[in-house]
């Protein structure tokens, strides 16, 4: 009876839009899911895009099997300090980082497979009061950390075997950096957003702080997700977790903003608002697609170039959605629930 009812009345959000459930994985031993991501993993000469799930005490690697099923490859036990987030390292294979801590990140750990002795390992990359961390191309990791005396922005380079090979400090701004984004197509450029709503641009090769530009007072605590340079302008995708609703732009979740780094002037290009009646969001961006978990327990998906919400995934029968992440390859959304269930949707 329930099945008939569902068939007769498909949810309008799913019926109209383009999220197609591909597969589902569930870790029966997982207590409380905190993050989900993807990572390339190679075994016996075969490189596959695997799913990585994290609960507070462990991180599990899943490989694709036949018929849209997933098999557990390995579970790293991480001890007493809880996992806060998975930190993917783009373009790498057999490596993934995780951030651990209580309220703030206190440690970044590298999880890897070592072919030298055919074993899965973990090693500590950095400790401290870490405010933000991002995996960069070429096995680099950038983090911002704060002590009472100083604020540090540091790059750590990792070898294929997971050892730290090199470190470099970037000139820190006065205020704390809360998020980073690589500038696509510019290997040496990095941007960050700060606690007082500035965009910082660095030269990664020299460590120079090149420019500081203000985002605007209407959008407190903006977070940068993606950046690219085109025609002499720096385009940055920002999310606005705490922006208030306004008549002019609704309840903004994401904005694409063009900055002129020469003059530090900026202009909003496109704004993507929350669906009517929804509040709160915590999101992820890949290319022109953004996804966010809303406080209603739904997941919303936007096309950032159109500024339109293109799909709304309602809370499932088992409960609210808690996580929304894009897979690093392919148009695939990873949607997670607190009980450890992860659904893969083709978008």
């Amino acid at each position: 009876e329930v099945a008939e009812q569902l068939a007769a009345e498909p949810h309008p959000g799913l019926a109209e839009e383009s999220l197609q459930l591909v597969s589902k994985l569930k870790d029966s031993s997982s207590c409380c899911a905190v993050d989900v991501s993807t990572a390339w993993w190679e075994a016996a000469g075969c490189r596959e895009l695997c799913v990585v799930t994290a609960c507070e005490s462990c991180v599990t690697l899943w490989k694709p099997l036949d018929s849209h099923c997933w098999g557990k490859v390995h579970t790293w036990q991480l001890g007493e300090v809880p996992v806060i987030q998975i930190v993917p390292l783009p373009g790498t294979c057999n490596l993934v980082c995780v951030a651990l801590g209580e309220l703030e990140i206190g440690e970044i750990r590298l999880l890897l497979y070592s072919s030298e002795n055919d074993s899965f390992k973990q090693s500590v990359v950095k400790t401290g009061t870490i405010k933000a961390v991002l995996g960069l191309k070429d096995r680099r990791l950038v983090s911002s950390s704060r002590t009472l005396q100083e604020h540090q922005v540091e790059i750590v380079s990792l070898s294929e075997t997971g050892r730290s090979t090199d470190g470099q400090t970037l000139m820190p701004p006065e205020e704390t950096v809360l998020a980073f984004a690589e500038v696509e197509g510019m290997r040496e450029a990095l941007v960050g957003t700060t606690a007082v709503n500035s965009i910082i641009v660095w030269n990664l090769k020299t460590g120079q702080l090149l420019k500081k530009m203000h985002v605007g007072y209407s959008y407190p605590a903006s977070i940068c997700h993606r950046a690219y340079s085109d025609s002499g302008l720096l385009f940055v995708v920002l999310s606005h977790p705490h922006a208030k609703e306004s008549e002019s732009c609704g309840n903004p979740a994401f904005r694409l903003v063009a900055f002129n780094p020469t003059t530090a002037r900026s202009r909003g290009v496109m704004s993507s608002s929350l669906p009517p009646g929804h509040t709160g969001r915590q999101g992820d961006v890949k290319e022109a697609s953004a996804a966010a978990v809303l406080t209603s327990g739904a997941i919303a998906v936007w096309d950032l170039l159109l500024g339109q919400c293109t799909a709304l995934l309602p809370p499932g029968p088992a409960g609210s959605w808690a996580l929304a992440r894009w897979a690093s390859a392919g148009a695939c959304l990873l949607a997670g629930q607190r009980d450890g269930t992860v659904c893969l949707y083709r978008y």
């Binding site: 000139m171 510019m186 040496e188 450029a189 641009v201 030269n203 020299t206 120079q208 702080l209 090149l210 420019k211 340079s229 025609s231 002499g232 302008l233 720096l234 063009a258 002129n260 780094p261 020469t262 003059t263 002037r265 900026s266 202009r267 290009v269």
Partner: peptide, 23 residues
């Protein structure tokens, strides 16, 4: 976006800012 909104635009902004910024 036009130059009137954002001021003069340089295609080489990264190199120019790197040359100007303190080391």
């Amino acid at each position: 976006c036009s130059e009137s909104d954002l001021g003069p635009i340089s295609l080489n902004w990264f190199e120019e800012l790197s040359a100007e910024a303190p080391p």
